[in-house]
Design a protein around this nucleic acid. Structure first.
Length: 674
DNA sequence: GCGATCAGGT
DNA sequence: CACACCTGATCGC
């Protein structure tokens, strides 16, 4: 819930995402996306009167946001006052005071925010400095570095203030599985269910909000089954979405809604009322997209959790995780940062403590100011072999959308029919931010896996350790994520087994069973850490009794029936989102639903291993699975020894290391092999 | 009757 | 957990 008041200090003449109270007097309005909590006052009588009696009052937003907004008749009065700005197209705007005639010019640029269709961030540039308002955003690690318009030449712009989506700005939300991971998990679950029979139907229990469209599009494209929705009119000018959704109930994937949803699936009834196809009752499972998060040291991420006989939760987040926020902010390195959202459990002060260290102004004595070292990361083709399964775990590699020119994008289109991208009319950008590619950019910054800049390090600690060279004294850099990634990339048991765990059972579900599938090296993996009850690590997707019956697979005492589905059968239509998927020879193991005490035990074990308090400063030693985690903020400047026995670098060594890095020499970092 | 706000629900 | 809503009750105009 956005608590942003609508004004930025530098340009108080504009109101953004708030339209009530004193925002009524703004010279111009900006709407970052079409979610109600960012539209407060937008159709209030007072503002409506002003709009209707003025020719000058304008609302600036993306073309898709304009389209979605005007679908609702309650906002029709804005129609002649909305200016749709193309994304990534700097536009000069004159802010004129209607009463005094005072004028102020500001250049505004819309940047894709990856939150929902049409969602953007606003970059304001003018006399009072450069200001970035993020609205709500979900950007994968490294995406800021690929946004050309955040750069001037090859360097990141000098940004005075960032008004930041801090929804998940808390270390306990350290990691949220990437869009691609989540999509893949949902895709495989839906696929495994609806391919059983024509009567196997999935209901996606989505909220009444924009943001799930790319999920629908991808499911439809991969499975050839359109998604049922209550209404489609808001997408009437977005053929790329429209094509994949339908009002025809006779489809196997539903995202329809009904006020009395809960009664609906009580027994095989969909919100739209459908109960059977061709006279045969449907077999229904419910997938509820929810945010799942993991602490810093999670090694594997299950994105599907079974919560009941035929109910599942699937990881889905509209907002950036803590590590993504940190990556974003530490790349931008503004002078100031202001949270748009007070953190869930915490206070604004607490969030500021986390964010301030990522800002330039954090330095007490304003040293000669080094501009952020971050340089625009150009696209760099990477040879992705089919065996490179790590990619799936590394959001930086798979989720990163290299900044490529519009022309390049156009060129790539013929061979890549748009999937999660709207190409209809002027709404090209609507889901553009969801596009990912299999390319990644070379890291021009030294890959300082031996250093990190912890946001949890206090000012005092930093000042006092003056004899220890600190990377961030000279360079903008936040390597915690990278190192964490490396950790994440260590081949896990699942990797060794040649398949990835996408699913897990929720503990506390008594009648579901985990059956360790796959090969002998692939034993049950218990999360060493998670923050929720549902992240016990299972390598098997469990399908219900219903399904077993449907499959007629009851085979006496046979505990496991594995139905392998080769995901390499995907025929990606482009090399963006699908590529990572098609590379992974992931198997979905469908196990019969048998009771097992072991499962509950496993789940219990998992929860006892949960470390809720993810700390900023982390331990120097690598914890192994099931080893109690040692949370420590000591020696927090030095994260990530590459081996369990690695030591904290000594100052001399560190200085030497910095020198090398500063000189542009490569520091070789090897991934642990076993 | 409408809107704003709050509580409670998913 | 929390999101982004929705509904319903209450209050003020």
């Amino acid at each position: 819930m956005s608590r942003f008041g609508g004004r930025v200090h530098e340009y108080p003449a504009v109101s953004i995402d708030r339209f009530d109270h004193d925002n009524l007097l703004a010279r111009a309005y900006f709407l970052s996306h079409c979610h109600k909590d960012h539209m407060k006052g937008l159709r209030a009588p007072a503002l409506r009167r002003r709009v209707e009696s003025s020719l000058k009052v304008k609302l600036y937003c993306s073309p898709v946001t304009k389209e979605l907004l005007l679908t609702n008749w309650k906002y029709k009065f804005w129609e002649n006052h909305i200016v749709a700005l193309e994304v990534e197209t700097p536009t000069q705007i004159s802010l004129v005071d209607e009463t005094t005639g005072e004028k102020e010019d500001v250049e505004v640029t819309l940047l894709p925010a990856g939150h929902c269709p049409g969602s953007v961030m606003f970059l304001f540039e003018g006399e009072n400095g450069t200001v970035l308002y993020t609205g709500d955003f979900r950007l994968a690690k490294g995406e800021a570095a690929r946004m050309e318009l955040l750069h001037s030449g090859t360097r990141v712009k000098d940004i005075q203030s960032v008004y930041l989506d801090t929804t998940f700005c808390d270390p306990k939300f350290y990691h949220i599985p990437s869009r691609e991971e989540c999509l893949k998990g949902i895709l495989e679950l839906v696929r495994s269910w609806i391919s059983l029979t024509r009567n196997h139907v999935v209901w996606l229990n989505c909220k009444a909000a924009y943001g799930y469209e790319y999920l629908f599009i991808n499911l439809s494209e991969e499975l050839g089954v359109k998604v049922h929705m209550n209404k489609l009119d808001m997408f009437r000018n977005m053929p790329e979405i429209l094509y994949h959704i339908t009002t025809d109930q006779h489809t196997q994937i539903h995202a329809c809604r009904n006020p009395r949803d809960d009664d609906c699936f009580r027994w095989n009834r969909l919100p739209c009322g459908m109960t059977c196809q061709n006279g045969t009752p449907v077999h229904l499972i419910v997938i509820k997209p929810s945010t799942m998060w993991f602490g810093e040291r999670i090694k594997k991420t299950n994105v599907i959790v079974r919560t009941g006989e035929s109910t599942y939760r699937a990881c889905f987040s509209f907002h950036s995780s803590y590590s993504e926020i940190k990556d974003f902010l530490s790349y931008i390195q503004p002078v100031n940062v202001y949270p748009n959202v007070p953190p869930v459990g915490g206070t604004e002060e607490k969030v500021m403590q986390l964010l301030k260290p990522l800002c330039r102004s954090y330095r007490r004595n304003p040293e000669p100011r080094y501009k952020p070292l971050g340089t625009l990361k150009r696209a760099c083709k990477r040879d992705l072999s089919d065996t490179d399964e790590d990619d799936l775990f590394d959001s930086e590699l798979t989720a990163a959308r290299p900044k490529i020119s519009k022309q390049q994008r156009e060129e790539s289109r013929p061979s890549s029919p748009a999937r999660s991208e709207n190409t209809g009319g002027n709404n090209d950008e609507s889901t553009e931010s969801y596009r990912t590619t299999a390319t990644y950019t070379s890291l021009k910054e030294p890959d300082a896996t031996s250093t990190s800049n912890f946001s949890g390090v206090t000012s005092n600690q930093q000042e006092s350790s003056s004899d220890v060279p600190r990377w961030d004294t000279f360079f903008k850099c936040d390597r915690l994520e990278e190192t964490s990634d490396i950790e994440d990339n260590f081949p896990s048991s699942a990797d060794a087994g040649g398949s990835q765990s996408l699913f897990s059972d929720s503990d506390g579900v008594s009648d579901s069973t985990h059956i360790s599938s796959q090969n002998s090296s692939q034993s049950t993996h218990i999360s060493e850490q998670g923050s929720q009850g549902w992240d016990s690590q299972m390598d098997t997707v469990l399908i219900t009794t219903q399904e077993r019956n449907a499959l007629d697979m009851s085979r006496g005492g046979s505990r496991t029936v594995a139905v392998s589905q080769d995901t390499t059968k995907y025929t990606p239509l482009d090399n963006s989102l699908c590529k990572p998927l098609s590379q992974n020879r992931s198997c979905v193991h469908v196990a019969c639903d048998l009771k097992s005490k072991d499962t509950e035990k496993d789940a219990d074990a998992s929860t006892t291993c949960v470390g809720d308090g993810v700390v900023e400063g982390s331990d120097n030693s690598r914890t192994t699975d099931l080893e109690p985690r040692r949370d420590s903020q000591s020696s927090s400047d030095f994260e990530i020894p590459l081996t369990p026995d690695a030591e904290v670098p000594q100052p001399e060594k560190l200085r030497c290391l910095y020198k090398k890095l500063a000189a542009g020499e490569n520091i070789v970092c090897e991934k642990r092999v076993s």
